[in-house]
Nucleic acid binder design. Structure first.
Lengths: 247, 247
DNA sequence: GGGAAGAAATAATCTGATGTTTTCGACGAT
DNA sequence: ATCGTCGAAAACATCAGATTATTTCTTCCC
């Protein structure tokens, strides 16, 4: 009991961890541009009022996430954007906190349209009773939250629904992509609120996906999930998957 | 010129980087099991003959990749497997160097079957002339390598083909997944060699995918890529996508 | 010109000391 | 007995300074 509990317990803010976030966001937001050098260690230490150890640990983490590469004599260079591990959960969260580019958001939505119907098909084929129960629980929480007009709770349950479905697909890669899909969903909610659209319209679609999975109807699950996503996207005011570059 | 070149130049082995790899592999291989504690810092330093700075930097990187969480007074605990960022390029490479689990390999293959046909469709819709030229170049290198019976070069060009296609999809998420797909391909090659199967059989299929993209035939590109993957999987001696858990 | 030796800049590593968070046990009060 | 407070200890967190190593740039010699 002790260990599992200990792992979960949250902790006070760690200095170097805050540093990682700060530097990552300054890179993500183009304040430090790819190809350029970060200020030298001693200068950053003085500017940020921290010791070299803390700074170095932060730089090493950023290096591990593909944001920078330190080199002796040269300095620490910011790597090109396409080498950043943007699917890293932390980087993903931090880039969504800033205003993400339209291109990135579109890519996330497209990826959902490709992955989630397939995941629904796998879930229909392979979900254990327990997996289905978790999906159903999320569905019920969506339903209750909607009845109570608690939209935050609705959105949270919505994300849980999709994560539970990915888990039920019994595919490790899809499960790993659940943070990506969660980020896309969270962003959608932000848009929904900004545009004052009516949330909760997707509840019946979710119910249908659940129903198809329970019936082990693979094709039906695929189709109903695809429909759900189409509707959600239209609801966002985006037409479905416009070609972007065409020549 | 200087910066771009400097970024690319490789360097001598860095101590802490080697440490990250060593510890990661010991965790991935279950030598350090999830839920258990790593040895305390001073002990590890003595065992591995390195300073605390180097060790701490390594631990911070591992923490950033979701493998461990250090906690004062408790120690550094290994996190549960499903919290590891297995799509991180480094972690992916290291787990493939060890013998990856059958479940993980199957998940990678399934993910390819879902993602790559979709990417081919997007490529057909959106690839620029330049994107197509890169794909074609990889195709030609595959062809030449096959003629020269240079199978290593063939496999390398094969990976380049798929990466170029993902890039041509103009979807950032798919592009990020190219390391995952590259890892799956590299593993396939290992199997192919072990089973002494004839490589190069997939060349015509690659040609057809290229052709469909060049013709802007989205559905054709999707279908031919799906066919390519089906054949590659049969060639591996795996039946196509068996349901694994069904009850 | 071209190549080799040297100098300089910067990260890399080591070392030792001190602070902080968290846990756990002891002790006392109710 | 149960609960809460307090204190001590264990591990990581942070700091500071010194030294080493790697590159790159320059300079000098051929």
């Amino acid at each position: 009991m002790a260990i599992a509990e200990a792992t979960r317990t949250l902790v006070k803010p760690r200095v170097h961890q805050q540093l990682v976030k700060t530097l990552a966001q300054r890179i993500l937001s183009q304040e430090f541009k790819p190809g350029t050098l970060l200020p030298p260690e001693p200068e950053l230490c003085e500017t940020l009022k921290i010791s070299r150890s803390a700074l170095r640990e932060a730089i090493k983490v950023l290096s591990g996430k593909g944001l920078v590469t330190p080199r002796p004599r040269t300095g620490t260079v910011v790597r090109p954007r396409d080498e950043w591990n943007l699917l890293d959960p932390e980087l993903l969260a931090w880039s969504m906190e800033l205003e993400p580019s339209a291109e990135f958001v579109l890519s996330l939505i497209e990826a959902r349209q490709v992955i989630e119907p397939a995941a629904a098909r796998f879930a229909a084929l392979r979900a254990a009773e327990n997996d289905i129960a978790v999906i159903e629980s999320a569905y019920e929480r969506m339903s209750e939250a909607l009845a109570a007009l608690d939209f935050d709770a609705f959105n949270e349950a919505d994300i849980d629904f999709h994560k539970a479905l990915l888990r039920a697909s019994h595919n490790v890669v899809f499960q790993k992509l659940s943070t990506m899909i969660g980020a896309a969903l969270a962003y959608s909610f932000r848009l929904t609120i900004q545009r004052a659209r009516e949330p909760g319209a997707s509840l019946p679609n979710h119910g249908e996906v659940l129903e198809r999975i329970r019936l082990r109807d693979a094709d039906g699950a695929y189709a109903s999930m695809a429909r759900l996503l189409d509707i959600a996207i239209v609801d966002l005011g985006l037409s479905s998957i416009p070609p972007r570059i065409r020549r």
